[in-house]
Design a protein around this nucleic acid. Structure first.
Lengths: 254, 254
DNA sequence: TAGTGGTCTAGACCACAAT
DNA sequence: TTGTGGTCTAGACCACTAC
């Protein structure tokens, strides 16, 4: 028979496994408090750092979250679904796409936004195919579901296209949605490109998404709306890595 | 004027910032060795754990990787691109999609695979819409680029469709690719659905992808090929979170 | 063999949450 | 006021890498 290495298991892994299994057995429900560092030190006879390492494993897996001063709690395992199918269409979206994403959650969902004229940074200029320093409209969003922030985004549109038109302000006019607004000024969006990556959360992202400063990761979409070869909008979208699922349906032509 | 909190910065954050900036300045190139725990202890006059925490920040950001016994090294920042556009078409793919993804890398790319008849687990049954225990063909893949593993996947096809046909073995016949193989047995794939998530790497994933056991995260695609409402293939694809970018082009109908 | 990062002990002080 | 998690010190042993 095969001789499994069977190396001595590490204490912190064993402890993490114990707690994980207890959660799986239902001994701890979502929102329940888990045994903290002090309890684990006594229960397993380990040092502070070892108990802490065990909880760090669960935190990184997204199973638990530490609330400083309060304790460690079991987190919700449900992911919000962002479905790209039918998300980008000419029909005036109603309700807006994000509300559909959040339809599963119990509490109210909503968002805040602020639009501002800016000059294109190097990156924004590259995304939109314009010159650095050209005027753009930047709109920053933060979306909420279940009372907590679940999505950040920054959208940029070249003011050479929208400046002085009724759709200059993305969230102020009667027409909403990039595609419909661009239609209104004669720019026919025919293609949306989304690039998906995962990376560590920056300090500011962790703060605004109410994630732990250390060890958090995010899902990032870099999106562009195109009218032919012209990029009419660029957008960075940031999700807590363990809270979202992105769905893409790809038609296979005959 | 606004009174910024200006809370005392933490030592480990300062140290991490110093090293990150040194990398940005080009003082350390990809593959170079960074100052280790012992050097940082002396240079900054901190304890082992604090130096370690500083390096942990960089490791989590994907900027550095620790090689036990050897040191901490600057990692490559280039992401492989997996483009869904034209990935799923009736034309016989040549070269296979993965080779296109890896076209940017300098060293050779390739993959290993192994196919095996199995019984559908609960999850596979649910994915394929069949009964638990039904026979399926499971094919496990591991893809390499630049000499290191960059992608794992597991594909399942119901043997009720492919069993006894020339395309029963995904990688053995003259016809390759799910769509072409299914065409060969009269199943016309018209839609591929991909669900993208991010999560912590499991122990076994970290091992097979040669990632650190702690703190690694992965991008996961759960993919299904559909012929009408019939799921003819399901597949889990796992990427190192900081090594890949997934691209989706979504056409906007008139 | 010397040095490395991974794990672990046994303490400490702090800001903050709950009471 | 008490307890919590976040940070930090000052040691230790180990398996492994590089020489």
């Amino acid at each position: 028979m095969t001789d499994t290495p069977d190396r001595a298991p590490h204490r912190y892994v064993e402890i993490a496994n114990d707690i994980r299994e207890a959660i799986a057995r239902g001994e701890y429900q979502v929102g329940d408090r888990l045994p903290g560092e002090n309890v684990l030190m006594q229960r397993y006879g380990v040092a502070r750092a070892t108990a802490r390492d065990a909880l760090a494993v669960l935190r990184h897996e997204g199973l638990a979250i530490a609330r400083p001063g309060a304790g460690v709690y079991v987190t919700s395992r449900k992911r919000l679904i962002r479905d790209s199918t039918d998300r980008y269409s000419r029909r005036q979206a109603s309700p807006p796409p994000f509300m559909t994403d959040a339809a599963n959650s119990n509490h109210e969902a909503g968002w805040e936004h602020v639009s501002e004229r800016k000059s294109a940074t190097t990156r924004v200029a590259e995304l939109l195919g314009i010159a650095v320093g050209e005027p753009v409209m930047e709109t920053a969003y933060r979306f909420f579901a279940d009372g907590s922030p679940v999505q950040l985004s920054w959208s940029w549109e070249p003011l050479s296209l929208t400046g002085g038109t009724p759709v200059e302000q993305p969230e102020e006019g009667s027409v909403t949605g990039v595609i419909a607004r661009m239609d209104a000024i004669g720019q026919r969006v025919d293609r949306v490109v989304e690039k998906v990556t995962a990376r560590a959360a920056t300090t500011s992202e962790a703060e605004r998404l109410q994630l732990p400063q250390r060890g958090s990761y995010v899902l990032v979409i870099e999106r562009r709306h195109y009218a032919g070869d012209l990029a009419v909008e660029a957008c960075d979208i940031v999700f807590p890595g363990d809270r979202y699922e992105l769905t893409y349906a790809i038609p296979v032509p005959d």
